[in-house]
């Protein structure tokens, strides 16, 4: 039998407090909330196409400051500015969230091993948040870059982008990824800071929101494809009659 000598360890530098950990955690939460809320608004605005071309035209006209422009159509550069801001927010969010990624093979194996042994639904949900987050790391900048370089939005112009530009392929992958990631992220951040403790209700609402937003997004995408298929090139921007 061996006896281990008890030697208290001094606090290692590793466990000393780091301001950057707290700041990174706050930044990740803040940018996540911003992006999640933006997605909710964004999907509803773009789904106004389901109410007709006129409805979508007026939403775009309002958001691009149509009331301040001489032509009444607004300024497409507002979309560029918003895209630029969102790109910065996405980068900050991705940068701070990268701390959570199992970047080493050993960490990935430990995660998979634990998931095989222990059945836990919230950990599994987080796993999907991780996978979708990884996908968004590549896909979200593509969408934002597209909006930065070609900010023209409108019933016909957007339909052209989706149908003739072939961007429906990007959106069909981006939509489920961003919806799942954002809704699970909002669910988690509300619990993380203790702002809401009614977890069962919150989880139900999250699942309802995921299904609702997916249906809304898919219906809108179908509408743009349908409009795009009827358009002949070159496309003329839509103007209400």
């Amino acid at each position: 039998m061996t006896i281990n000598t008890f030697v208290p360890n001094p606090i290692s530098p590793r466990v000393l407090g780091h301001r950057r950990s707290a700041i990174a955690d706050q930044l990740q939460s803040a940018t996540g909330i911003m992006l999640g809320c933006f997605l909710l608004v964004h999907l509803h605005f773009e789904s106004s196409i389901l109410l007709g071309k006129d409805a979508f035209y007026h939403v775009v006209q309002f958001l691009e400051g149509g009331m301040f422009s001489a032509t009444g159509h607004g300024y497409p550069w507002t979309s560029q500015i918003i895209s630029l801001i969102m790109l910065v927010v996405v980068m900050v969010h991705a940068g701070t969230a990268l701390r959570r990624f199992p970047i080493q093979l050993g960490q990935w194996r430990a995660l998979r091993n634990q998931q095989q042994i222990i059945k836990h639904s919230d950990s599994r949900l987080w796993f999907w948040q991780l996978i979708t987050g990884f996908g968004l790391f590549f896909l979200a900048p593509v969408h934002l870059y597209d909006m930065l370089t070609d900010p023209s939005i409108g019933p016909n112009l957007s339909a052209e982008r989706v149908y003739h530009g072939g961007l429906w392929i990007l959106y069909i992958v981006l939509l489920p990824m961003v919806v799942i990631h954002a809704m699970l992220g909002l669910y988690r951040v509300l619990l993380k800071w203790g702002w809401i403790n009614q977890r069962t209700l919150l989880r139900k609402l999250t699942m309802i929101a995921i299904v609702y937003l997916l249906m809304l997004g898919l219906a809108s995408l179908a509408a743009y494809l349908s409009i795009g298929a009827e358009l002949s090139l070159p496309v003329t921007p839509y103007t209400p009659s």
């Binding site: 606090i11 466990v15 407090g17 780091h18 950990s21």
Partner: peptide, 9 residues
């Protein structure tokens, strides 16, 4: 904070 105010805490 010095003990748990970090990435390991």
């Amino acid at each position: 904070y010095h003990v748990i105010g970090n990435q390991d805490g």
